[in-house]
């Protein structure tokens, strides 16, 4: 890789203090996203994928969160930035879209007001020019009748339109990195695919880097260049899309891919599920977090966290037994 990556994260750890407990939500994540690349971060609820994403913009409440490690976005060290520098980065450099736009947009401001506010926050401009730019942003996400949407409140639009409006809001300041937190989970299946296509088109047109968090492998397949699988706050396997689908190494990735009905679920067929429950983040096992649910687990797995090993140059896995597993 000749040029500098858009995102470089080393040994990221996020701890939440809640009551007397400490939740170890993210336990040493390494990842890197090139310019113009789409990385999908997939995993179950509680695997730390959304927490990782929010930590990238340092959006967690400072009082109850501890972040360790190194985060670099577009060459800037996020851990060293002042509050003011962070605010200047959020929007024009990195932007975020959320799972449920109805909750993520302020309900008492119109879409237009919210986009204009963002634009004027980062680039001083007259209100009329900002309004024109906001309209342009809405057009770029191909929202129907954008002039009307400008003065609409979030609750007055459909789910798909709201998600388009949120994408317009996020992209209004022309960021280079888009962090997408399950942006299609709350949508109907038909709208999901439209939003995924839109994201892919915008990504290609604008040369965006995207980190796409989802638990839906099908959605990840639509947009991602590379997939990172998270479990118990760690990335357990990371590979280019085709490589990961065809040659999964980690036992968790294998069962995860296995839970996806290949040719649709036929009547009377049981949906495959992974036995056991996701790990308790307040009380993580000493070794591999997946060991209690893993059919191949050994004593070593239960006592020692496996190191990251390379399967191929761009395919890494975090398992003691990956090269001894049955194919």
């Amino acid at each position: 890789m000749s040029e500098q990556p858009m995102v470089a994260v080393q040994d990221l750890k996020v701890r939440f203090k809640r009551g007397g407990q400490t939740l170890a939500a993210v336990n040493g994540v390494n990842l890197s996203v090139a310019r113009g690349e789409v990385l999908a971060l997939i995993g179950e609820s509680g695997s730390g994928k959304s927490v990782t994403l929010r930590a990238l913009m340092r959006l967690h409440a400072e009082r109850s969160t501890r972040i360790e490690g190194r985060i670099e976005i577009a060459g800037q060290n996020l851990m060293a930035l002042s509050r003011r520098q962070l605010q200047a980065l959020r929007g024009p450099v990195a932007a975020m879209i959320f799972q449920e736009p109805l909750l993520a947009l302020d309900p008492v401001y119109t879409i237009g007001q919210q986009i204009i506010e963002t634009l004027r926050r980062h680039r001083p401009m007259p209100r009329a020019a900002a309004r024109e730019a906001a309209l342009e942003a809405l057009r770029s996400v191909r929202i129907p009748s954008p002039e009307q949407r400008l003065d609409a409140y979030p609750h007055e639009m459909s789910g798909g339109m709201r998600q388009r409006a949120m994408i317009a809001l996020a992209l209004a300041c022309q960021p280079k990195l888009l962090l997408a937190d399950e942006p299609t989970t709350a949508l109907d299946a038909t709208v999901q695919i439209q939003i995924l296509i839109l994201l892919r088109e915008l990504q290609q047109a604008l040369g965006l880097s995207i980190i796409f968090v989802t638990h839906d492998i099908a959605a990840a397949v639509e947009v991602a260049d590379r997939i990172a699988v998270m479990y118990g706050g760690r990335i357990v396997e990371q590979a280019p899309l085709a490589e990961l689908l065809n040659n999964p190494q980690h036992p968790y990735t294998r069962v995860l891919l296995g839970t996806r009905p290949k040719d649709g679920l036929r009547k009377g067929e049981r949906l495959v599920s992974i036995p056991g429950a996701p790990p308790d983040l307040a009380n993580l096992p000493a070794g591999c977090a997946f060991a209690p649910r893993c059919p191949q687990a050994s004593d070593l797995c239960r006592s020692e966290v496996p190191a990251i090993e390379a399967v191929l140059a761009d395919h890494s896995v975090c398992c003691h037994h990956w090269n001894r597993l049955p194919i």
């Binding site: 605010q87 302020d106 008492v108 401001y109 506010e117 926050r121």
Partner: peptide, 25 residues
Amino acid sequence: AQEFIVGLRAKGLGEWGLFRHVVKN
């Protein structure tokens, strides 16, 4: 505690910008 507060932070608003939204809500 609502999600849109995170959304407002994510678009670069400072504490005073946030305060305006809280007041209006």
